[in-house]
């Protein structure tokens, strides 16, 4: 890793500060993220809407279930951006086959309920480790940081549900007065017309699109923070400075 090219200030932070840094990261790169996020994921989610006629709840569950896939899109962007590279949609498109070599199948099945998902993802996706090496690596990184990553997930679950309900509530509040009551009843009705399920599921995906990037970035920041801790990245940077200073001053004395 070329840590001297990192776009984030390195210093050992406590876990909460690392999470805050991750949120700032997500905020700083929202443009390139959303460009890629919506180009790749919106077609998929729209395709899922054809199941709407069958059952609206199933669509919601599938949208939720595919989150590890969305995470990989987000981490792809952040992994490039922290090294000062802005990936294009074309780069992301080419990276898709790579997503399937990041333990995606396991992530969508028996690892789907891992609450430290976004913290562990860089090990799979950026380090590309597998099997015993991956497990050993994960154990070292998880030590004393995993609980924070789990709490992060619990917080983000709350943010996401609150924003999803907020978006639905705004639809209700903005409905014309004459039909407001019917709209309210339909939003709560299980046998509501097709468009209601379509609308609420798209709003749910919007809420995911707002919160998930922050969740992934925060997990990534926790990962970077942990590596800074156990590998002394911040120290390495300054030591290079020291060595450089001394060498240049010696060179100027010799001249």
């Amino acid at each position: 890793m070329q840590i001297n090219q990192l776009a984030v200030a390195l210093r050992p932070r406590n876990a909460h500060e690392a999470i805050d840094l991750g949120f700032m990261l997500a905020r700083a790169y929202w443009k390139s993220l959303y460009m890629i996020w919506f180009t790749l994921l919106l077609p998929l989610v729209i395709l899922l809407q054809f199941l709407e006629a069958y059952n609206a709840w199933i669509v919601a569950v599938i949208i939720w279930w595919f989150k590890p896939l969305y995470d990989r899109v987000a981490l792809f962007v952040y992994g490039r951006q922290v090294f000062g590279e802005t990936p294009t949609v074309r780069d992301a498109w080419r990276a898709i086959p790579g997503f399937f070599r990041t333990g995606l199948i396991a992530a969508l099945t028996y690892r789907r309920i891992d609450l430290a998902r976004s913290f562990n993802l860089p090990i799979f996706q950026l380090e590309g480790l597998r099997g015993a090496t991956r497990r050993a690596r994960q154990k070292i990184l998880n030590k004393n940081t995993r609980p924070k990553a789990v709490w992060l997930a619990i917080a983000c679950i709350h943010f996401e549900s609150i924003l999803a309900f907020s978006l639905i509530a705004i639809v209700y509040l903005m409905a014309p007065h004459t039909v407001q009551q019917q709209v309210g009843e339909m939003l709560l009705d299980n046998n509501a017309p097709l468009w209601v399920g379509l609308l609420t599921n798209m709003l749910y995906f919007m809420a995911i699109s707002i919160v998930e990037p922050f969740y992934v970035a925060a997990g990534f920041a926790l990962y970077l923070n942990r590596r800074t801790q156990i590998e002394g990245w911040d120290i390495e940077l300054v030591f290079h400075d020291i060595a450089g200073n001394i060498r240049s001053s010696e060179a100027s004395e010799a001249a």
């Binding site: 002394g232 390495e236 060595a243």
Partner: peptide, 26 residues
């Protein structure tokens, strides 16, 4: 950074400790 290196050396692997120390060789 020098103080942090000494304080955090116990958290680093021995190889990494040597690597960092060698960077500051001058």
């Amino acid at each position: 950074a020098v103080i942090a290196f000494a304080e955090r050396a116990s958290m680093l692997t021995p190889e990494r400790t040597l690597e960092l120390a060698n960077i500051a060789a001058p």
